[in-house]
Design a protein around this nucleic acid. Structure first.
Lengths: 239, 239
DNA sequence: GAATGGCCTTGATCTGTGTCAAGCCGCCTT
DNA sequence: AAGGCGGCTTGACACAGATCAAGGCCATTC
């Protein structure tokens, strides 16, 4: 059961600085002072524990979410339990827009997650006469769509080794936007999650990590990998 | 080389009725009279012949397109030539928005295609202070994204037979929005296109069609299939 | 510090789909 | 009507990755 971190979401300056470190990257990043205060009054800051669900596919989509902190797993299931992870959400990402009245996928926390939660009605009323906000939402949707298309190419046409390499490169680059460039790529998600993201089995993912390590492209470290040969590695990921 | 069907795009009533039959479904479907006339003045109606490119990945994205008539193939290529078709565009679909200054995929005509083409600058200036239009673009993007996510599930987690069945059901339902419900599903794209859409080879697609026919689920007809047992067929596509 | 359980790795074997190759069918050209 | 060509189908075989099974490692608990 999620609890409200700030039931009175009209948080003071200190807390805002803490919890909205990603604001420039988020959907609300270009709101000016007055608008942002109005927007904040619509928000509930909610914290979810590890593996807790933010929302599930086919539920009535009564809220949208701006991820503030932590990482979420977005996925779809087939009736027999096969799972496809359609993305990992990072701080600044915007979740929960659906083309119908119900969510088209499920989202749950990997480790702890903090979000700004907005009920649909008030949210839509807020944006409906704010062209700048609508443009920003369009940018977000277009970027998401483009990532999804990259992933289709990966799922449909790349080998297991290419999938893993492309995943690591893509993940490293997304983390770099948040944390700056590093040699060590942290992987908060488990091997099964990676497998379900890449359309592979956990065994194939594990073997492929080992293979990349044998080929001296990476070193496997606790909860991550270190990229040894970025040049050769990026080439493998691109091809 | 495409030629302008209406170099003076300010077309008269008759031509509009002919060429904008899909307007209620298109991006401009909710513009009121005066706005729509302004919008039309920004448009070039352009016709492309079979296999002609509307635009290509990595080109400067200087225009967006509303597909009026015909079908387009949207795809990405790997450096070695492997191709993933990320979608088939139908009349009413909106193409060409990109998260960067360049197109993130290629689009070309299957058979003949007619579009409304808008240069990026005038288009953005037109929409920037029209919340209704921006909302509609959001709806379009959200629907596209949801389709892309369905496709990820298909590519990552379905068997060849499930892929083909799900493709036929999805395609039939999209055509039904335009042409009404029919038993016969027309397939204007070739087997290689279907293969590249489903992450399969042409041989596997061909064998799977034959298998579905042997199992009395479909009959293969010229340029399409007839679905014999919709109940059983939809079940196969869902599972 | 022994037992438990979750997560990951590794090995052996199987199989669905890819690859390679041949042939068919309908259509266009001459 | 003969030839050629593009698109499709079919068969034989190969292989990447799945499946099945076992074992290792580490953190947590009692």
């Amino acid at each position: 059961m999620p609890h409200l971190a700030f039931p009175n979401s009209n948080c003071d300056g200190f807390r805002c600085a803490t919890h909205c470190a990603v604001r420039p990257l988020a959907i609300c990043g270009e709101l000016e002072q007055a608008e942002h205060e109005e927007f904040e009054r619509l928000a509930q800051h909610v914290r979810y524990g590890a593996k807790e669900a933010l929302f599930s596919e086919d539920e009535v989509a009564d809220a949208v979410y701006s991820l503030v902190e932590g990482i979420a797993r977005l996925y779809k299931l087939l009736p027999d339990g096969r799972r496809q992870i359609i993305g990992f959400a990072l701080p600044g990402d915007f979740l929960g827009m659906a083309p119908s009245a119900r969510y088209s996928f499920s989202a749950d926390a990997i480790g702890g997650v903090t979000v700004c939660k907005f009920f649909r009605g008030p949210f839509l009323r807020f944006i409906e006469n704010k062209p700048h906000m609508l443009m920003r939402m369009n940018e977000f949707a277009t970027r998401e769509l483009s990532l999804a298309q990259d992933q289709m190419l990966l799922l449909g046409r790349r080998s297991a080794e290419e999938k893993v390499a492309a995943f690591l490169v893509g993940w490293r680059d997304r983390l770099a936007r948040l944390e700056g460039v590093t040699k060590t790529v942290s992987l908060p998600m488990g091997r099964q999650d990676i497998a379900d993201f890449l359309g592979l089995t956990i065994e194939t993912v594990s073997r492929t990590f080992t293979k990349l390590e044998r080929e001296k492209l990476i070193v496997i470290v606790p909860d991550g990998v270190r990229v040894l040969d970025p040049k050769r590695f990026d080439a493998l990921a691109a091809a």
